[in-house]
């Protein structure tokens, strides 16, 4: 079948502002949207700029806005979008990050915010021998959050960032939960001042757009609320 891929183009060297360009591509309905973009790049217009790597939803390179929804081009089948929205597919770069070229955005701030929550197990206690023990139940508490591939789909989907660009965003908070809920981690206090700050967890208003957009099925909003609860419990303890 033929589809029309309508792509937002922008080259800072030559364009004052972004514009849309349409490409007609022959695809199998079972192909990925990424396959369609690759056909454009390899056989129609080599100048189309987008990131890609694994092509099956585990590296996070090709997150973009597809018909207004954030997600991975390699995890979106042509037939899904066509069934839902017709045979013109509009593709735009992720939001809240400066566009560098076409669909390529600068993710430095996104990663800066991720780094700010200290995304590593904090535990300086010596391990005497071999492994730290962890029960199967303890391990499963934070299981879904370990899926995160830092693709920034949730970040682009978050309505809060429209108003408050300093909000650390859903991915960073979900990753904070991944460590706070790990029985081996002792970093609650160290992460407290980032999470409890005005731009930490509190701006989240439970829009659930992050959870809906996550290509790795992480219950992001739920994890954000868990952290709010942890912070509130801690305050209650301090007060009592």
């Amino acid at each position: 079948m033929n589809i029309i891929v309508k792509v937002q183009r922008y080259n800072p060297e030559t364009d004052d502002k972004p514009y849309f360009q349409e490409f007609t591509v022959e695809v199998d309905p079972n192909e990925r949207l990424l396959d369609a973009l690759m056909k454009v790049k390899r056989f129609q217009d080599g100048s189309l700029g987008f990131r890609k790597s694994c092509a099956h939803g585990v590296c996070g390179s090709d997150a973009m806005r597809i018909n207004g929804k954030d997600g991975l081009a390699c995890k979106t089948l042509v037939k899904e979008v066509v069934e839902k929205d017709g045979d013109t597919v509009t593709v735009e770069p992720l939001r809240f990050m400066p566009v560098q070229r076409d669909l390529i955005v600068d993710q430095s701030e996104f990663f800066e915010k991720y780094r700010s929550i200290k995304p590593y197990v904090i535990n300086d206690e010596e391990v005497e021998e071999g492994e730290r023990l962890q029960s199967q139940e303890e391990r499963m508490v934070f299981d879904d959050t370990t899926n995160c591939i830092l693709c920034a789909s949730c970040y682009s989907a978050c309505p809060v960032l429209e108003e408050n660009s300093d909000f650390i965003g859903p991915a960073a908070i979900a990753q904070a939960f991944r460590f706070l809920a790990d029985s081996r981690d002792l970093g609650f206090k160290e992460r407290l001042k980032i999470l409890d700050a005005p731009d930490g967890v509190w701006p989240c208003q439970n829009h659930f757009q992050c959870t809906k957009s996550c290509p790795r099925s992480i219950l992001i909003t739920k994890r954000i609320n868990s952290i709010k609860k942890m912070l509130n419990n801690q305050k209650k303890q301090q007060e009592s």
């Binding site: 391990v127 492994e131 790990d182």
Partner: peptide
Amino acid sequence: AVYDLENRGLPFNRTPEGRI
């Protein structure tokens, strides 16, 4: 090498005894 990864936070699946 596996113990080092675990000590550094790698979330391995566990046995009923809590081992890797």
